[in-house]
Structures are given as C-alpha cells and as structure tokens.
Design a protein around this nucleic acid. Structure first.
Lengths: 405, 405
DNA sequence: GTGAAAGCGCTAACAT
DNA sequence: ATGTTAGCGCTTTCAC
C-alpha cells in the first residue's frame, strides 16, 4: 500500500492567530488556488485544541455487571430484552450501561450466536447512481432491523476473481447481497455454497432469491411507446459489454427486440451500438447511428446516464430533440427531470428496501423460501425529449451538402 | 419493520416451458407494463433449478489443523503469514485450507486482538454523487489494506441523534470516518471519546485528523474567475441549510465573500439564495435572483448538482447561458462535462483514498499524529457556461414589457 | 428470577 | 519450528 504523502513544510505565516476557530483563519496553509499537487499539512492553530486522549479500554459487560451489582448473565439478558428479568434489576443494569456508555461487542456475541449482525453487499462500483440509490434503501431497512451494512466492491476482473476465490463475506456476514452482476455459472455455484443466504439484486437469478424490476417488460413498453409516436427506426444504445458487470443490457435489449417483433419491424444490428463511460465513446456511437443510410428517428438508451450523454452530443451537434431525434432513457435519474428527459422510472430505492427486507427474512427464518422473487414495477414518464416522428423522414442532412440559399 | 408484501397468486400460464433459462421465457409472471403496485412472485421455472442446500457449518481452524496434521497454532501462524513456519507445514496448511474453503472468522480473531479489521464510515446519505465517489476511493484503499468497510447513514435528525447517542461503531470498527457533516461541539466531544481514531472527511475539524479540499480558496478562486470576466453582480446559490448535514455551504460562501471583498464589491444578501432538492425550489431561487432590481450576471452554485438544476431552469425560461447569465458549479460531476458546465473540480475519489490511508495509518500506529490534516487541491475547469459579462447590463427583460416590433 | 460455569474460534505467551 | 495453554467478551445451559 502506498504510504501517506510526505508532510510538506508549511511556510510559517508571520502571525499565527492563536486559538482562532474561524475557518477562514484556520486555513492558513500555503495552498495555491488551483494547485496541482496534494500535500499533508500540520495544522498550526489546531494542534492547540486537543491533547491526545489516552487510549481507553471499552467497558465490558463485566464492568456493567459490577456497577449494577448483578451478574453478567443478568446484564446480557437485560440488554437483549429478555423478559425474565425483574424490573428492579433491569433498571439498575440500564442505568449502569448508560453511565458507562456501554456498547455491546458484536464480535463477542457473534462468536457464540453464530450471527454477525451484519449484511454484506457486493457491487461493481459504489459510484453509480443506481448503486447509490439501492444502498440508500438498503441501509434504511437494515438500520431498522438492527443490522450493520458492509460493502465490498470489485473494480476489475482481477478483483472480481479474488472475491469469488476467497469469499471474504463468508463468515463475516449473515447474508450477502449481490447487486447488478452478470454472474457466470461458476460464480453462482460458488455463492450457492457460501453458507449464508444470498440475495441477487437487480437481476433475475434462477432458483435463487432475487429482487429486480421487470427490465424486459419495461423495455418492451418503452419501445412500444416510441412505436406509438410513429417511430419505425429506433436505435438502442447500450453500455459497453466488456465490463461484464451489468446484466441490464441483456434484458432491456431483449424487451426492445420483442417490441420490434410485435410490430413486425426488423431487428437491425446497425441500430444497436455500445458506449463506454466518457463523452468520446458516446459521440462515436451517436455518429455511427446518424451516418446510417436509413438513420433512426428515436434512440432508446439503456440508462439515463447514457441518455444524458447522448443528449449532450446531440445538442453540441445542433441536432434538434425531439424534432429530429427522440431520446428515451431508463432509470429516472435525478437529473432526468431537470433535463426534461423522457424515461422509464425504476424504483431504485425500493429495490434496496425490498432486498434488505428479503435478506432479513432469510436470516431470521432459515425455512423461508430462498427462491422467492420480488419484482418491482416500472413506469414510463413522458417528458420533452420524445415526440412524434418527423413527418417525412428527411435525408440525413450533412453540413457539406447543405448549400446556403 | 414492514414485512414482505404478500405473495401474489400468479396466473398460471398455459404452458410452463420446463427448464428453460432464457430470460425472456423466465419472465412469465403477469407483470403489467407500467404497473403501479409491487408484488412478490414465486418463480415457476426457477424452483426446479435448485434444491435447498442443508445449512452447513463453516470449517474452523481446528478442521484445517486436523486435515493438515498440525496444531491450530501452526495454522494460525501460517494464515497470518508469520515467518516462523516451515515450508513443509505451510504447504500442508495451505492445501488443507483451500480444500475446505476455509475463511477466517474476523469475529473470533478480533476478540483476542482487539482489532475488528473493519473501518466504519458515517455519511449523511449514500445517494449523493460526492459520497459515492469518496466511497469508491475509500473502498479501493481499504481493500488493499485488508480492511472491511462498514457504512452507517443517518437520514434525518432523529437518526443522527440516535447515532451519536449510541455510537454503534464504538466497539465494532477500528476507525470511524465522518463524511461531510457539520458537527456540533457536543457531537465532536462524543466522537473524541469514541476510543478509536476518527477521521473527518471533507471538513476541517480543528485539532483532529481531517481530509478535505480547500473550499475557501477554491470558492475564492472561482469568484475571482467570474470577476475576471467582468462580472460585478455575482449570485451564490447554496443548499438549504436546514438539513444541517453539509459544511461546504459555509466554507464556500466564505471564499465567495473574500473574493468580493478583495475587489471592494459589496456583499449583497439578496444575491445569496438557498435551494433544496427538487426543481421547484431551484426555480423559485432563480426567479428571486432574476427579479432583483439589479440582477446578477453570473451565478456560482455550491455544487454541480445545484448548478445543473439552475441550468435547467434557465433553459426552460429561455434565458441564454452564458450570454445573459454565466453559471459556475463545484465538483466536476460526471455530467458537468456533458453539459459543458464550467466548474471547480475537486478530487472526490482521491479524498476517499487519502481518508482511507490516513485511517489505516492511525489504526496501525497509535503514536501517529492524530491531528494530521490532508488538504487536496482543486482546479477550475472553464467550459461553456461562463462568459464575459454582457456589454451593457440590460434592464431585466420581462415578457409583458417587451412589445413586438 | 438469578448466578456459575462452559465454551464459541481464535491469538499470544510460554514451553518444548 | 511447533504444540500447549489461557483467555478475549459474550451467550447459553443448568443449578439454585
């Protein structure tokens, strides 16, 4: 692991305002505006505020018991809310615990109960909108259930392999939630043998507990909606498949194809393009579509984040939305409303909540149906980026061709 | 806690394709497109895929020792990488551990070492862009350090109070990271007595370990930049202060005021407006600014997310950016580039990395400087939403006043 | 209703 | 270099 950067020797200012707390005065380090390098500073004015506290031992149940004048067993029973404790003893224990700021050690109790009081979640990244929303719902439910939340993320294939090889969650969580992973059979098998319940989030895992929205039906509905506006040439922009982390591409593309088939529209592979993160890739993908002999009049993006990139590219190219090209997203990202993006909303927070609830159920009740599926609804939100197909499909106008009058 | 929703009785389709794995065929539940209610489904085709595995006991070190024909101590030493193990014994232990898929129980080892191998983080929400980026950097560093990451989030003031009352992280983590909280003195005091190192992230905590970007200098620089474009009436749009969760409003506003003062520009309270999440609040805030007798020619938004809302409102009002109004953000959110938003970039992922590194240092070395500050740089990225001040500050044009020629 | 004692799985000190 | 032993802080019998 990389160590901390070296401590830079701060140029001592002429006068150090003693004991000041105003943030503007505290920030007296020689930090250039717009500097390019990072550094570590000793904080002059801060150092006086606090002398190091001696590392103190956390109080244990024995401490509480002694103070309350009861046995450790009684403390344990009281704190777990068992009814076999007299009111008198309970009061004494609660008072003692409060006075000592006693907090139970999950490590110790888990050793004997076999429960860790923790739920682990595995996600491809912690930085995406969807994962963030799922975690929000999840943490809310787990907090109410008295469970802690541990997160594992794997950034690339090597880390992914390492995770499935070692399964660090194995003995250190009561359940594992896997968010939005396109798993191989081997990985499924590995998790099947994990020894704790596994809940698959945002994906349909055959024969295993899953929570997801009906991507296929939603994408079918979205494509039908575009068809209803008169569009016949509908493009699909998907995330780059190389990451291997998302399974929504597959399902949403499937729904798209179904809706085309319903209307006897051909599935044209030229209309399906992939983009990876970053504006360049999206610009290329969009360019590819617009250069087709028979270009699309509508674009269905796999996620709102992709749709927003597409909008951005279209705007800077001067292509009118929705007059010349309609754009449909998926997610109802916060920014979708602000950008007036038509999208298929999915209840991401609710997906998190349902996952947490399901995990909690499976933990508490080992006889619960471990193959239960929770399917959450989606709904289309028509906004301003979609409109009727242009009356006469115009030849794709290229700048070099259009002469000024 | 709310229970799981009732299992809906699925209408059995005419034919259940047996053993199929194609996702489209699996999704045979009566899920209406765009349905409004959620439900739980039993998955017909899935149930056949897997018979419940009996709950199996996790192998312990004793199991590994027995299989390897050595003592438990040797297993422990081997797995911890101590050098006092013969190659022969090491090989046998590693083989046995692998065969049994042994995973060490942190619970048990932490009981004796006093270390949990876990770092806890407290965040106001898990759904914001900044927190997500910080968590990305953090998890990367912690993974390399062999530490697990536990997250606590508090959604409202009641939960916040409960957290500081109980301090659930107390005995269950080796360090606590507090992200972007505006803490009271009482809360600081409570954390000072936590018994484990605390790192304050995205905030300057006097006398305590902190990692942050220099908000004051950055905001000063951003405001100077707008001044350099000729702007004299510069508005500041901040997040609603009622949440009490962010401390960036205070510091960034301070830098803004400093830059005004440098140029002897007056600080006009009418130019500082607050907005909460949601487009309506932003629309009102922007409206307030545009209705001023002497309206601003530039807007500095506390975050990119706010700036994007502002842009959206301006666009739908037909107010040209930057011709009539310049907009400056803060963060360099992913969407900022797509939207061509001028912004002050902060290295959010790097903030997470540095926090994790600092926490790791403080855990491993109790004598390390617990008041160390890491200050990371910011830089301004000029893009298309900022431009020179309009030549002659025009009277604010109101639709009712402008007559058609 | 309460306490004493055993032991969860591991590490650390000691003995060999 | 390896095995033996004594706990870490808690829960859980089992007596009382």
């Amino acid at each position: 692991m990389a160590g901390l950067p070296q401590i830079a020797q701060p140029t001592r200012p002429d006068r150090i305002p003693p004991g000041t707390r105003d943030p503007s005065e505290l920030l007296i380090f020689p930090v250039d505006d717009n500097a390019v390098t990072d550094r570590v500073h000793a904080c002059y004015t801060c150092a006086t505020f606090r002398t190091m506290l001696p590392a103190q031992r956390h109080p244990t149940m024995a401490d509480v018991a002694e103070r309350a004048g009861v046995s450790v067993s009684t403390v344990s029973r009281t704190l777990r809310g068992l009814s076999t404790v007299s009111d008198e003893a309970r009061a004494k224990v609660e008072a003692a615990a409060r006075e000592l700021s006693f907090v139970i050690s999950r490590q110790a109790s888990s050793l004997v109960t076999g429960k860790t009081g923790t739920v682990a979640v595995l996600a491809p990244t912690l930085g995406s909108w969807f994962v963030g929303q799922v975690l929000r719902g999840l943490s809310e439910v787990l907090r109410d259930a008295g469970l802690d939340l541990k997160v594992y993320s794997v950034a690339d294939l090597a880390e992914r392999a390492a995770f499935f090889d070692q399964l660090p969650a194995r003995r250190n969580a009561d359940a594992l939630l896997v968010i939005s992973f396109d798993l191989t059979e081997e990985e499924f098998a590995r998790l099947d043998g994990l020894g704790v319940p596994v809940v698959y989030v945002s994906q349909h895992a055959p024969g295993r507990a899953s929570v997801y929205v009906e991507d296929v039906a939603a994408a079918r509905g979205g494509t039908r909606y575009l068809r209803g506006l008169g569009h016949r040439r509908i493009a699909f922009v998907r995330a780059a498949p190389d990451s291997g982390f998302t399974c929504s591409s597959r399902t949403r593309l499937f729904g798209y194809r179904e809706a085309l088939a319903e209307a006897a529209l051909p599935y044209d592979e030229d209309l399906v393009v992939a983009t990876s993160r970053g504006r360049r890739a999206t610009a290329e993908a969009v360019g590819q579509l617009l250069c087709l002999a028979d270009p699309p009049t509508a674009v269905f993006a796999e996620t709102d984040e992709i749709a927003i990139e597409v909008l951005s590219v279209l705007r800077s190219s001067g292509i009118a939305v929705p007059d010349r090209l309609s754009v449909l997203g998926f997610d109802d990202h916060d920014h979708a409303e602000w950008l007036d993006l038509t999208t298929i909303a999915q209840p991401a927070v609710e997906v998190g909540r349902a996952s947490g609830t399901l995990a909690h159920t499976l933990i508490d009740d080992p006889t619960a149906d471990a193959t239960r599926h929770v399917v959450l609804p989606t709904h289309l939100i028509p906004r301003g980026t979609t409109g009727p197909v242009p009356q006469s499909a115009p030849e794709p106008k290229r700048e070099s061709e259009s002469a000024q009058p």
